[in-house]
Nucleic acid binder design. Sequence first.
RNA 1: CGGGGAGUGGCGCAGCUUGGCAGCGCGCCUGGUUUGGGACCAGGAGGCCCCGGGUUCAAAUCCCGGCUCCCCGACCA
Length: 470
Amino acid sequence: MPPKSVLTPQSVDFPQWYQDVLNKAELADNGPVRGTMVIRPYGYALWERIQAEVDARIKQAGGQNVYLPLFIPESYLRKEAEHVKGFSPELAVVTHAGGKQLEEPVVVRPTSETLFGEVMAKWVQSYRDLPLLLNQWANVVRWELRPRMFLRTTEFLWQEGHTAHATEQDAASYALRILHEVYRDFFTQVLAIPVLVGRKTKKERFAGATNTMTCEGMMRDGKALQMATSHELGQTFAKAFNINYTSESGQVQIAWTTSWGSSTRMVGALIMAQGDDNGLRVPPQLAPTQAVVLLVRDEQGAGEKARAIADALAANGVRVRLDADVASSFGRRATKWELQGIPVRIEVGPRDVAAGTVTVARRDTGVKMPVSLDGAAQAVPALLKEIQEAMLAQSSAWLASHIADAATLEEAKEAAQTGFARLPYAALGENGEAELGLQALSVRCLQREDGSVPASESEPGIVAIIGRAY
RNA sequence: CGGGGAGUGGCGCAGCUUGGCAGCGCGCCUGGUUUGGGACCAGGAGGCCCCGGGUUCAAAUCCCGGCUCCCCGACCA
């Protein structure tokens, strides 16, 4: 471990620690326009890995990718009253183009329900066209009053899924399936971040939805982060855009739609849920580089050995990188890879060569150990698997130790200062949510006793998860 | 939009009170010595001091106006 930290320790100033990581791990810079962000190569590499994993799961669930335009006629947004009401304050509107004022202003998409509504109405004619399962990877713009890099930026990258179904039941079960099989699975299996799945209260619901479901993760400062959402849109958009189909019996029916999304915010979640005082910790399943072979000094054939190990690792399917830049000092390079959270570091120097070993360092625990030179390439895949499991186990234990049961609103407020409080929903009371708001607390989601997603807000015996949120 | 802070080499800052050669640390470039946890020595490059106006022999510094960014509160993935 370094003698002194390069970063502000988390315990001293968590937001500053976050800023330090962004800079030192070379993830992102501020853009010239307030709230915008320049994603640097390493930050983008993380995003590309996230995209690949999420995209594969969407395809597995039957989704097909499309691309719809950035610009939306302003009139489209007005077609759904709740929707436009919810988004109006943060719209970027183009009023001038081509050197003159536009007849009808055009909004830069804040989300694409309306455009998908228009398109689906065209594409859906018969019950045979349903379900229609679409997704797009795109940028969207929401004029944020208070931006934070990766967590809340004016422009961000995301995927938004939009589907149309013949029945309410089919729409509901698909929205739930996405929540579980795409999002929760990705968060736990790849990011090694356990999440609470649940239903949003009416107050926290997406503008225009009949039901919003969420994956809530806990960051290392005890605050909640909504990491993905899945919405049932009922027939509100279908009615507004005439997404109709002819049923098997020949009657014209209105479709039921859903939408669901996850964004570059997930990079922020990775940083804040897995990072430590030495920087980022990237789980092996996600890591663009899973192992770095670090040549200490090119003496006694260490350079050749290092290359041979890197080649052998690549042949074993490990995403590996060789750092033979001996013009830079060892400490500088070791610190760099540690800041970037590369899961495994294999140090090869003359001392190792003489002993017939290499030094293998785990980023998650910081433990270093000698491994025989010949066995190193074989041992790494198993080690990566072990690290992945250890990281999930660690974050799960941490989450569990930061959730407390509360019987009253007062108890919940107390418990939510350091983590999440579980309060019987019935004990929240009429003005409970408003009261929580005064202390910057909110109901993150509603769950059943067993942690599953309730079918409705009025289901008996459900609990409210209360916490501070980003 | 309310409250607070700041704009000076790439980054972080000092200088401003009391006007007088534009500085420091880090980074960068060259050469050398180094290298097992952010190495050292020597040399070097790099500036519209946020913008506009004013005062003055002289403005980074004083005055007036504007812009931008950051932090804290109300809305949000």
